[in-house]
């Protein structure tokens, strides 16, 4: 599913979703994005939402807050948010300001 918010959502198998953000995703505009993603999760009964960070070079506090908001939303549907393909530069930037484990799961790649 494509939209004007700067990401695409793809259904993977029976219970997983893949979210691929583009450069134009605005992490400050969380409400309409959350609404759209929630609807999609609800309709697909997804258990896992993979968030592909392959193109995100830096994760600052704003982007991290967006991921946390999305993670919180996922828990309402008993869906697990898992970030994948985090770049070293993004991991370094994120690890420099977080003080505890993020509320979402992290993985090198999609799990079987």
């Amino acid at each position: 599913m494509k939209n004007n918010f700067g990401f695409s959502l793809t259904k993977l198998g029976s219970n997983s979703l893949l979210l691929e953000p583009y450069d134009n995703l605005n992490p400050l505009e969380t409400e309409p994005m959350v609404e759209l993603i929630s609807e999609y999760i609800f309709n697909t009964n997804a258990v896992k939402l993979y968030y592909d960070l392959n193109k995100i070079l830096i994760i600052d506090e704003i982007y991290y807050n967006w991921l946390c908001t999305l993670s919180k939303t996922c828990t309402f549907f008993q869906t697990q948010l898992i970030t994948i393909n985090m770049k070293p530069s993004a991991a370094i930037s994120l690890s420099s300001f977080i003080t505890k484990k993020p509320p979402f799961e992290t993985a090198i790649e999609m799990q079987n």
Binding site: T83, P88, A90, A91, S95, S96, T106
Partner: peptide
């Protein structure tokens, strides 16, 4: 700790 945290963020 930052090394360990960054490692975990990458999923390891």
């Amino acid at each position: 700790i930052q090394v360990i945290r960054a490692t975990a963020l990458m999923g390891a």
